[in-house]
Amino acid sequence: MNDLASTVQAGLFIGVGVGPGDPELLTLKAYRAIQHADVICYLENESGKSQALDIAVEALKSPIKKQQHLGVRFAMSRERVAANLAYDKAIGQIQEQLKQGKTVAFLCEGDPLFFGSFTYLLERLDSQFASHVIPGIPAFVAATAELKIPLTVLKQSFAVITGRHSDAKIKAALLEHDAVVIMKAGIERPRLLTLLKETQRFDDANYLEYISRDNQKIITDLNLLENTAGPYFSLFVITRQELRKKANQEMKV
């Protein structure tokens, strides 16, 4: 689907990756899909705030047609009952729009299928409706760009895990792989700092919050990081020291 504007069909559900936060990291394909959609759908918090909507602000300034907005009220929580009820309600509303032959663009921070809520909506979608996914830049990719540190080279291995995994799984990943990204690190930050020390990867780690946004925070010396819980939008990037030293040397040139 190279020319989205000419190939979008009635009753189409599109997962649109809007990237990590910087509106300029929105891909051209995502920009055009947002402009041409009949309905713009997105998650919003209990205050009606949507970070995905904020990221897509430039594309939303110049829509091709009159658009309807559909906010999905969603509270960040590990408790899945409320989350599933929200997804059930949302897919019902989305299908009503699709039945009318409309194109619904669901805005997703990062990439739609990488820890994305779009995944849960897509699996609920009736098979009679067509769907499409437009990839976005994941937060950890933007993070390494900010750090100017390669995740892997040559035969080095790489793993992505979350702070929600058990101590055993996190330690196994840290011990086995040269590079590790730990997503959803905020609330688990004290525990993760302990695990990094226990696996002797503490000095290999970088910590980032709100990547590519105005309130971005980067800490490359974890001794300066408070041993308290952090925000949801945070992660650790752990790479071997030799890669970090090389990158730091190049930054000083």
Rank of each mutant, 00 (worst) to 15 (best):
D88Q: 13
Q93H: 14
Q93M: 13
E96N: 15
E96F: 07
L98C: 06
K99S: 11
T103L: 09
V104I: 07
C108H: 04
E109S: 00
P112L: 12
P112R: 09
L113Y: 03
L113Q: 03
F114T: 13
F114Y: 14
F115H: 08
F115Y: 15
G116Y: 07
S117E: 01
T119I: 15
L121I: 12
L122K: 10
E123H: 07
R124Y: 09
D126I: 03
D126E: 13
S127V: 14
V133G: 02
I134E: 03
I134D: 01
A139M: 03
K148Y: 00
I149S: 04
T152W: 02
V153L: 15
L154E: 10
K155Q: 13
F158I: 06
F158V: 05
H165C: 04
H165M: 03
K171C: 03
A173P: 01
L174H: 04
H177G: 12
V181R: 02
I182T: 02
M183S: 02
A185L: 06
G186N: 07
E188F: 15
R191E: 07
L195K: 02
L196F: 06
T199H: 00
T199A: 02
Q200G: 02
Q200F: 10
R201L: 01
A205V: 13
N206Q: 10
N206H: 13
E209M: 00
I211G: 05
S212A: 06
R213H: 05
R213I: 00
D214V: 13
D214R: 12
D214A: 12
